[in-house]
Simulated scan of single mutants.
Amino acid sequence: MDSNDSASLSARRKRTRDQVVAILADHGNGLTRASLSRMTGLSASAISDCVSFLRASGLVVESSAPGKASGRGRRATVISLVSDEGVVVGIDFGHSHVSAAAATTAGEVLHRCAAAIDVDHRPGPAMDLAAELARECLQRSGHTLDDVLGIAAGIPGPLDIRTQVVRPPTILADWVGLAPAAELERRLGHPVSIGNDADMGARGEQAYGAARGLEDFLYIKASHGIGAGIIVGGRPYRGATGIAGEIGHTQIPGAGNWCRCGSRGCLETVVSVTTVRRQLAHVLATHEDSLDDSAVPPLAELSDNPAAARVLSEAGRTVGRVLAGLVNCLNPSALVLGGELGAGNEPFAAGIRESVARYAQPASAQAAEVRTGRLGAEAEVRGAIAAAIAATRIQLTGTN
């Protein structure tokens, strides 16, 4: 073999190792060799060679997988990155709140705190609050910013992944032109990984919740807006500029309300937690007293109320019709529901199931299980923790 062939082989092996380490960084609980082969498209022998090198370098460990033995009594093994002791911070910007959490690099939450603020129209104060909450979480868990290995945050709007700047001007108008990662880094003194809040919710459920073990699924954050975090082949899919999953701006036939994006009849003008609460306030009012939408009980508590269940299931059917198109295109194994509308709301989930079964291609519909998220309001901040851990591991292992 001449020097050119040797150099080519060496470069190919390095790309393979970088690819495997990056995938393992996204899956904190580890993966089997078969899963690594499937997700990378590499042969079993190439994966074996790569794992042997990474083990010898002290970057990964191989341990027995939980569950029963497979084959002729031989238990499958799981490959995972070596965990360095340290602390990370996850931050979640909602439309009307900011939450933060300090966690170990193993994903254990040490302290979580949150506060209300008008995030959409006060980006500067929201950034200040996020930094304050991050420091509070660290202090209450016995740490300081000097102990932090990584920070990640999710924002409720479109972020151009090429420039790390918020766009377009019709959504989060007061944030347009802002670089959230740079703003947080200036306040906290650490590099910050930034993503859309639905993408963070998907990562949270994938790492710690209802999507553990899934490689192809959609996370639906149904709250003041409607967004989707898309996971394909175990990795987030963000599209060409980072704004994939903005399903809330799919137009609904017959709907004519103006949307904040400048179009009429978008899904989120018909189904949002604000609209649904207004409808519920109407059907739950008594003959003697009207009911303000702010006084509507938590949606998960209304499943046994027939009138309220009708409102919630109709909202689910409307969202489900949009999701049926995604099911046809992406053939996911699950739709994981989150946000105020999706978390613990069985009538809403039932409405989605009904529409997906009716409008998606039968084989794709049968493969797409509709699941309620397990993390509830913590999904996005837990996803930010997972993203911070992944960024930390990639940095420590020197991969791209």
Rank of each mutant, 00 (worst) to 15 (best):
S3W: 13
D5C: 06
A11C: 04
K14Q: 14
R15M: 15
Q19I: 04
Q19E: 12
A25R: 00
G28I: 12
G28E: 04
N29K: 13
G30W: 07
R33S: 11
S35E: 15
S35V: 12
L42M: 08
A44V: 10
I47F: 08
I47L: 06
S48A: 15
V51N: 02
F53K: 03
A56V: 13
S57P: 05
G58L: 11
G71Q: 04
S80V: 02
V87S: 05
V89H: 02
D92I: 11
F93T: 00
A102C: 07
T104L: 09
T105C: 13
R112A: 08
C113K: 07
A114G: 04
D118C: 09
V119F: 05
H121C: 07
A126E: 05
A131S: 09
E132G: 09
C137G: 03
D146I: 01
D147C: 02
V148F: 09
I151V: 15
P156M: 00
V165Q: 00
V165H: 00
P168V: 01
L172K: 08
L178S: 10
L178Q: 12
R186E: 07
R187I: 10
L188Y: 04
H190I: 15
P191N: 00
P191Q: 01
V192I: 06
A198I: 10
R203E: 15
Q206F: 07
A210Y: 12
A211H: 03
A211R: 01
R212W: 11
G213Q: 06
G213T: 05
H224T: 14
G227P: 11
I230F: 02
G234I: 09
G234C: 07
G234R: 02
Y237C: 04
G239N: 02
E246H: 09
G248Y: 04
N257K: 07
V270H: 00
V273T: 14
T275S: 11
T275E: 13
T275Q: 14
V276Q: 02
Q279F: 05
L280Q: 01
H282S: 08
A285E: 03
A285V: 04
T286L: 10
D292H: 14
A295T: 01
V296D: 03
P297T: 03
A300Y: 13
A300C: 12
A309N: 09
V311N: 01
V311S: 00
A315R: 01
V322L: 01
L323C: 04
A324P: 12
N328W: 10
C329E: 09
N331L: 13
N331A: 15
N331H: 14
P332M: 02
L335F: 11
V336P: 08
G344C: 06
G351D: 06
I352G: 02
I352D: 03
S355K: 02
S364I: 10
Q366L: 12
Q366Y: 06
A367F: 09
L375W: 04
A379G: 02
V381W: 07
T397M: 11
T397I: 07
